[in-house]
Design a protein around this nucleic acid. Structure first.
Lengths: 209, 209
DNA sequence: TAAATACAAAAACTTTTGTTTGCATTTCGG
DNA sequence: CCGAAATGCAAACAAAAGTTTTTGTATTTA
């Protein structure tokens, strides 16, 4: 193996370590941390490698501050585009609450994909196939924008008669308010009490059959 | 307004600034950066605030290192759970390539949701309703695990006759290989040449009607 | 093979960053 | 109103982190 190759391997190892540190600690490593990690005898050698990495366009170095390393590369995650969306599995009777403490899990999703801000959305597991005709299947996860009103024709997540949550099309016409399942085998629901949890704005499916 | 309230406001402003810096620069701010941001006259005042924040459980401070601030809070994003998935809008004829340079855009998705590692997946916009009977609609985004073989019955993204990419169920039986649209109005395709791009493993919908 | 370049280290040094100390104010309960 | 506690500042200090210089040894390359 040529010296050149060895160098490139070392550079990519260091690159990976910086990436790792950034991911785990939200902070790039110092020269001395890199030195220790790779058993390099002197800080200047690390500085040498960093210069090489900069020349190769792997990283950017801000020399005016400590830990001034920035990774260049398409792998980089744009944190500003991310939001945290809680998956609310089952909804307790009574006033629904979506506090983060009470949810099953929280997932990070790109804001740009769902056109929403942090805190506006939550997710629900869909059980049953009452909406199969609009392509919402059993086992899908729907993404809901939290609000307690809905317009005619919107697909909503709602709490019917203070019972379990359900997904249906919200319809309001001369006959009053009803929930319409998009499944020819099922009939409309005329709820006694109805609380809208939110509008369905997206869907995620992780099981394809 | 009491002094106490003023302090709490200042603390949460600083908290927010740390959060911002972490998000934008992948590195927490220094005491002096906070000082400048909020026009505080002395570094010791900032240290005082940070101590208060630590007492209130807002942050964690590692005093052995510079920029040793860590935010405590449920909003924190678990970076290690994220992967970058490119959205490949149109696929060029010939050998399909999914180099990041050639994709329309890249989105960050949680690995845990799609059970995949960074680099294995790509996304495609679905055009047409040839798969509507399994709940894949026009306008959906499918998530595909890159591989060039498929098993009987799997839903695949494939390149038919070196033409545009398509999503169909892959069927291999006594009649040979064919692509089956899940739409009763459409008929099976017996391709002359077929290259599998990958297996559909997930779906994202951002337009609900 | 000679010269140039790449690699590595030690040590001293500079800059950046965090901490401490002492002293003013201000606030607030008694 | 008094004094303790909270708040805020300046300046000196200490520690962490980055840079430079010098020296030496391999490796290429002309």
């Amino acid at each position: 193996m040529t010296k050149k190759t060895e160098l490139m391997i070392k550079l990519s190892q260091i690159y990976q370590y910086i990436e790792e540190t950034l991911t785990e600690r939200q902070c790039p490593p110092t020269i001395r941390e890199i030195q220790e990690k790779f058993d390099i005898k002197s800080t200047s050698s690390v500085a040498y490698y960093l210069k090489k990495m900069e020349e190769n366009g792997l990283i950017r170095v801000n020399r005016q501050k400590s830990r001034g390393l920035e990774i260049i590369g398409s792998r980089q995650i744009r944190l500003s585009d991310l939001m945290q969306v809680p998956l609310v599995g089952s909804i307790p009777a009574g006033q629904p609450k979506f506090a983060i403490e009470e949810c099953e899990d929280t997932f990070t999703l790109p804001r740009s994909l769902f056109h929403a801000e942090n805190g506006q959305l939550f997710m629900l597991n869909v059980e049953g196939s009452s909406m199969k005709d609009v392509g919402i299947n059993d086992g899908d996860i729907i993404i809901v924008r939290s609000q307690n009103t809905a317009e005619n024709g919107q697909i909503v997540a709602a709490l019917v008669n203070n019972d379990c949550a359900t997904v249906k099309r919200f319809i309001k016409d001369q006959n009053g308010v009803r929930l319409h399942p998009e499944n020819s085998a099922m009939s409309d629901i005329y709820p006694e009490t109805l609380s809208i949890l939110g509008i369905v704005v997206g869907l995620i499916r992780t099981n394809i059959n």
